[in-house]
């Protein structure tokens, strides 16, 4: 009974995910191939237009096409989120693997550094760093990487510490393989599943962080079509043209939701609930 329910749920998630991807792709094709708007083209004669075939989501306070900006915002927000995530993984995982595999002093040193980073909440570090380094999407990315690598280092380390005890590692040692080889060829494949799950759950959080910091003016700067920044720009028109805030808001919610669904799906697939919960 339970197993049938799980299967149905996973399948529903799959259908849901693919439907959304197709929808987004269709809208993007329509906007970029048929409408061909310039996202930063200002036309004050066309300010705050309602929906039409020409401007499916209307235009904003400077007469720019909303749909084009939302879609380009996807590229910006999700793209940067992805980049930050990738770099955090690329930094965190090797550190964690080395700490876990070497043990001893190296391990303690690396993990104390990680603890220090972990002691501050993400948002606070990001705000402080953006404040210190100056507002801008690059500095925001740097802040996010600094905050996030720790999670990957810890996950990699704890996985390595449990795997290290197993016979195949002992066997590889007995067979005289180099430590480097054991780490990357034998241990690493066991890590990928865990990392993937954590990463897809993190993607949503990072996107939210980028958007919220851009909203308060610390991330992407106008006229960049970043969703958080767009929300901020639309604030004065909140009462007259609420659509200007609804579209970027919906976009953020959708993407975060999708990345969480993807994370859940991967988690079920790799069944690593415990490690992620820790």
């Amino acid at each position: 009974m339970t197993s049938r329910l799980t299967i149905n749920r996973t399948r529903a998630t799959k259908v849901f995910l693919s439907a959304f991807l197709i929808l987004i792709a269709a809208i993007a094709v329509y906007a970029f191939l048929i409408l061909k708007h310039d996202p930063s083209f200002v036309d004050l004669n066309e300010r705050l237009l309602p929906m039409s075939w020409q401007h499916p989501f209307g235009t904003d306070h400077l007469g720019r096409d909303m749909l084009t900006r939302i879609l380009l915002g996807f590229q910006l927000t999700v793209g940067y989120g992805f980049l930050a995530l990738l770099l955090a993984v690329a930094i965190g995982v090797p550190i964690g693997v080395i700490a876990g595999f070497k043990g001893g002093l190296v391990d303690r040193l690396l993990m104390r550094v990680a603890d220090a980073f972990l002691a501050f909440p993400d948002t606070v570090v990001a705000i402080v760093l953006s404040g210190l380094l100056g507002a801008g999407i690059e500095n925001l990315l740097l802040a996010i990487i600094l905050v996030k690598w720790v999670n990957y280092a810890r996950l990699a380390r704890s996985t390595v510490v449990t795997e290290r005890q197993k016979d195949y590692i002992t066997m590889a040692k007995i067979n005289g393989l180099s430590e480097w080889r054991i780490m990357w060829k034998h241990l690493f494949p066991h890590l990928i599943g865990h990392i993937l799950v954590l990463a897809s759950l993190d993607l949503g959080k990072i996107i939210l962080l980028i958007s919220s910091l851009s909203y308060i003016g610390l991330g992407a700067q106008p006229p960049a079509p970043e969703w958080g920044a767009m929300l901020n720009e639309a604030r004065p028109y909140f009462q007259t043209v609420p659509a200007l805030m609804i579209y970027p808001g919906l976009a953020i919610v959708t993407v975060v939701l999708l990345s969480n669904l993807l994370g859940d799906y991967l988690r079920d697939k790799f069944d690593v609930k415990k490690e992620v919960a820790e």
């Binding site: 197993k166 016979d167 195949y168 066997m171 590889a172 007995i174 060829k185 034998h186 494949p189």
Partner: peptide, 14 residues
């Protein structure tokens, strides 16, 4: 060496 846990003696991905 030869171990009891033959399953665990091989890396499952190779």
């Amino acid at each position: 060496y030869i171990f009891q846990d033959y399953q665990g003696s091989f890396t499952s991905f190779h």
